[in-house]
Computed example of a mutant assay.
Amino acid sequence: MTFDLLMAAIGAAGAPDRLNPVKLFLDADIVVQVVMVGLLLSSVWTWMIIISFSLRMGGVRRRSDAYEEDFWDAPNFEAFQKERGRANVPLGKVAGEGLAEWRRNAGMKSVDPEGARQRIGMAMNSTVAEEADKLADRLNFLATVGSVAPFVGLFGTVWGIMNSFFQIGQQQNSSLAVVAPGISEALFATAIGLFAAIPAVIAYNRFSHRVNAFEARMQRFADRFLSALTRQLEQG
């Protein structure tokens, strides 16, 4: 009986066969519309970051593979660095910083191998951290959207429901035909919030893992190169 009354009320309101997102947006309260626009812009920016980061990370990986393979085969690290060091490769910057510190220590009158090892290691570790920060620069926005967007959408939903109840009071009519459209528009804000948040969270977790993995790769490269440089200092 109750279900029949609900269906009759919906039919009396002339409800469409399916939801129309554009109509839901246009019929929503101005506050809810502002929330929806903000969330949609955040979603567009999120996808731009996802696409650009994927392309950037793929290019960095390919250049690093080629650089590292040739680097360890080079007979002379300094000559190789002069030839390939200007390329935009994070590993090249780590190697360049290590070689610069190595030359400064090699030019000293009295070389302390342990002190030189620590200084060279600190120089390369600092570059590793700097390059990792550059790669992860835009990921904070994904984390922000993933954590905040559902609550922003919920704010729009709460505001829309409050407005629907206000209309009930104004019209002194509590029928479903009065309250249902406003509630639908309000819930649409939460749906957009989730639409923005879900890919942001997935992308942030995935990309953070890739940045951490590449940082670990740079650290292994730095450790291996540090061993090679300190051997040369001890022999020299």
Score class of each variant (00 low, 15 high):
Ile183Glu: 01
Ser126Tyr: 04
Asp112His: 08
Asn125Arg: 12
Ala197Pro: 02
Leu6Lys: 10
Lys134His: 09
Val158Trp: 03
Lys93Gly: 15
Val44Cys: 07
Asp65Gln: 12
Lys82Tyr: 02
Ala186Ile: 11
Asp27Val: 06
Ala13Ile: 01
Val31Tyr: 09
Phe151Arg: 08
Trp47Asn: 08
Phe3Met: 13
Glu130His: 13
Val31Glu: 01
Ala15Met: 14
Ala79His: 08
Pro21Ala: 09
Val34Thr: 15
Asp73Ile: 04
Leu26Cys: 09
Ile50Lys: 07
Leu233Phe: 07
Trp47Cys: 09
Ala8Glu: 11
Ala180Gly: 10
Val89Trp: 02
Leu39Asn: 05
Val37Gln: 08
Gln81Ser: 10
Ala116Met: 05
Val158Glu: 02
Leu6Gln: 09
Leu229Gln: 06
Val178Gln: 03
Arg224Met: 09
Phe25Leu: 14
Arg62Tyr: 06
Val201Leu: 06
Ile168Asp: 06
Ala180Gln: 04
Asp29Arg: 03
Thr157Ile: 05
Ala66Met: 09
Phe166Glu: 10
Gly59Trp: 07
Arg18Phe: 12
Ala203Leu: 05
Lys134Ser: 11
Asp29Lys: 04
Pro181Phe: 07
Arg217Met: 06
Asp112Thr: 01
Gly107Gln: 10
Ser227Ala: 14
Phe214Asp: 01
Ser174Thr: 13
Ser126His: 11
Ile50Cys: 12
Ile161Trp: 03
Leu176Gly: 03
Gly121Thr: 10
Thr46Ser: 15
Pro199Leu: 08
Arg61Met: 10
Ala191Lys: 09
Pro16Gln: 08
Val94Asn: 04
Glu185Cys: 05
Gln118Thr: 10
Phe166Cys: 00
Leu24Ser: 07
Lys109Met: 07
Arg224Val: 01
Pro90Arg: 09
Ser184Asp: 03
Trp47Ala: 06
